[in-house]
């Protein structure tokens, strides 16, 4: 299990070995700095805290400046933790750099980011409801959700709406993890990762890249 922080550069296309075109996403991954090493004695659990991309000193609050100073580095914009197992060896000290080379030999990665905000969306877009017919007498409810419960329905709580009923509302702008992206290229020189498929969030959005946990890590 490995974590690296990065930024979405954009998407392009690539040919695979059989000559098929695939959509790929280019990620600027690292170099990250180890901000803190958490231990059971001091923090109750084991973790590495990584930071990505410098912030101007004048734009930082003093506590963050002090936190970064402990690792003898500059404050970072994007800080996340990499939780370690009980028996996992820590080979990093605060201030160390972590680069894309940690993904050497890794076949698949999970990428987490904040998805693009869609605003206030209806049920068809937000939950994939079917809507109603365009014609045949349908009036003013083409994209409506339909019935949301009856007067004294048991499926609700005696006349109340069932909790968690899917309705219209804010969509997007939440943390999304997209799993099992084939890792196509590691460019150690420019700190780039190229993964297959699309990744949550806009171009320039911050992402967390992890080794995939649900997929066998064989590179084929």
């Amino acid at each position: 299990m490995t974590l690296l922080l990065g930024k979405k550069v954009g998407m392009t296309q690539a040919y695979d070995s059989e000559g098929r075109m695939t959509a790929v996403t280019v990620l600027q991954a690292g170099p990250c700095t180890v901000m803190q090493v958490k231990t059971p004695e001091t923090d109750g659990y084991r973790a590495l805290q990584l930071g990505f991309e410098d912030v101007k000193k004048s734009r930082t609050k003093k506590p963050l400046l002090g936190h970064a100073g402990k690792a003898k580095t500059t404050p970072k914009r994007f800080v996340r933790e990499w939780r370690l197992d009980q028996d996992e060896q820590v080979e990093y000290a605060p201030g160390d750099a972590v680069s894309v080379s940690v993904f050497e030999g890794v076949g698949y990665v999970d990428v987490a980011g904040t998805s693009k905000g869609k605003g206030y969306a209806g049920v068809m877009k937000r939950h994939g409801f079917g809507g109603f017919l365009a014609s045949h007498g349908t009036e003013r409810k083409h994209r409506a959700p339909g019935s949301i419960g009856s007067h004294a329905s048991d499926r609700g709580h005696g006349g109340n709406l069932k909790k968690g009923k899917r309705m219209a509302g804010r969509m997007g702008g939440v943390r999304v993890t997209s799993k099992n992206h084939r890792l196509l290229l590691i460019d150690a020189e420019r700190n780039l990762l190229v993964v297959k498929g699309e990744v949550p969030g806009p171009t320039g959005g911050y992402v967390e890249i992890r080794t995939s946990r649900t997929r066998r890590q064989t590179q084929t």
């Binding site: 550069v9 954009g10 392009t12 690539a14 790929v24 280019v26 600027q28 290229l185 171009t203």
Partner: peptide, 14 residues
């Protein structure tokens, strides 16, 4: 910068 990086990734497949 963004276009430069994307072009260089593309260039491997041209």
């Amino acid at each position: 910068m963004k276009t430069e990086i994307l072009d260089s990734v593309e260039a491997r497949h041209l």
